[in-house]
Simulated scan of single mutants.
Amino acid sequence: MHQQSAGQLPAEVLAAFQDEQQQLDAAGIPAGVATVGSVMPDGDLLDAHGEPTTLTAARNGRPAVVVFYRGAWCPYCNIALRAYQEQLQPALATRGVALVAISPQTPDGSLTMQQTKELTFTVLSDAGNQIARRLGILTAPTEPVRQAQAALGLDLTTVNADHTPALPMPAVALVDTAGVLRWIDVHPNYATRTEPAAVLAALTTLD
């Protein structure tokens, strides 16, 4: 993805993204991220068809791996979702663990047409980033990055359901049957993601 971007993006746009990623690396994980053992937050969500639901309802009594992603416009998110579909979903299904992905986009924009056909796990829309805010993983792009995004035709205030530029930091959380957070991995720098192997290893916390 980095190699592809370097060859395709205008130099000033690429520089804005790289500067932001360096700042995110330097800042690290926020101090207020929810701790293991706390209750997993929930909120009024929408499913892929625009129907009201909640994370609790989507879990339906099952433990769950909950993936927070920025949106279908984010190429890093698309790579991660495909990897989770291929490398995580089969193993989780065997163990009776739900896989749920949440973004702040409107339901009709949270998945690409290709993803709609290919992804078999649950995808939810969290208008207003209710869960991300309560988890302590809410962020927003810098002004130079917003300008760079605009140069590429992206305006988060028209993409996000709450019409703000707020985004969740990419993160993966493991929730047990009681709705308790058993493991969480947060990536302030959106250019890195939780590896499927790390999620599979975390499943031992459910035993």
Rank of each mutant, 00 (worst) to 15 (best):
A132T: 09
A132L: 11
R133H: 13
R133F: 12
R133E: 14
R134I: 11
R134H: 15
L135S: 13
L135E: 11
G136Y: 12
I137N: 12
I137M: 12
I137H: 11
I137A: 12
I137C: 12
L138H: 08
T139V: 10
T139S: 15
T139D: 14
T139I: 05
A140C: 03
P141Q: 09
P141W: 05
P141M: 04
P141G: 06
P141R: 04
T142M: 11
T142D: 12
E143I: 12
E143N: 08
E143Y: 07
P144S: 13
V145L: 09
V145P: 06
V145D: 04
V145C: 09
V145K: 03
V145H: 09
R146F: 07
R146G: 07
Q147G: 11
Q147H: 15
A148N: 09
A148W: 06
A148C: 12
A150D: 09
A150M: 07
A151V: 04
A151K: 15
A151I: 05
G153A: 08
G153Q: 10
L154D: 06
L154A: 11
L154W: 02
L154R: 05
D155L: 01
D155P: 04
L156A: 07
L156T: 03
T157M: 08
T157R: 15
T157E: 09
T157W: 01
T158R: 14
V159K: 01
N160I: 03
N160Y: 01
N160W: 03
N160D: 06
A161Y: 03
A161G: 05
H163V: 05
H163Y: 08
T164W: 04
T164E: 10
A166C: 05
A166Q: 14
A166I: 02
A166M: 13
L167K: 00
L167T: 00
L167I: 02
P168C: 10
P168T: 08
P168F: 04
P168R: 04
M169E: 09
M169Y: 06
M169R: 04
M169I: 00
M169G: 01
P170T: 05
P170V: 05
A171R: 07
A171P: 07
A171K: 07
A171Q: 04
V172C: 06
A173R: 02
A173E: 02
A173M: 10
L174D: 02
L174F: 10
L174C: 08
L174R: 03
V175P: 00
V175S: 02
V175H: 01
D176Q: 01
D176Y: 03
T177D: 13
A178T: 14
A178L: 09
V180A: 00
R182A: 00
W183P: 01
W183Q: 01
W183Y: 07
I184F: 02
D185Q: 14
V186I: 14
V186N: 04
V186L: 10
V186H: 02
V186E: 04
V186W: 05
H187M: 10
H187R: 15
P188R: 00
P188E: 00
P188N: 05
P188V: 02
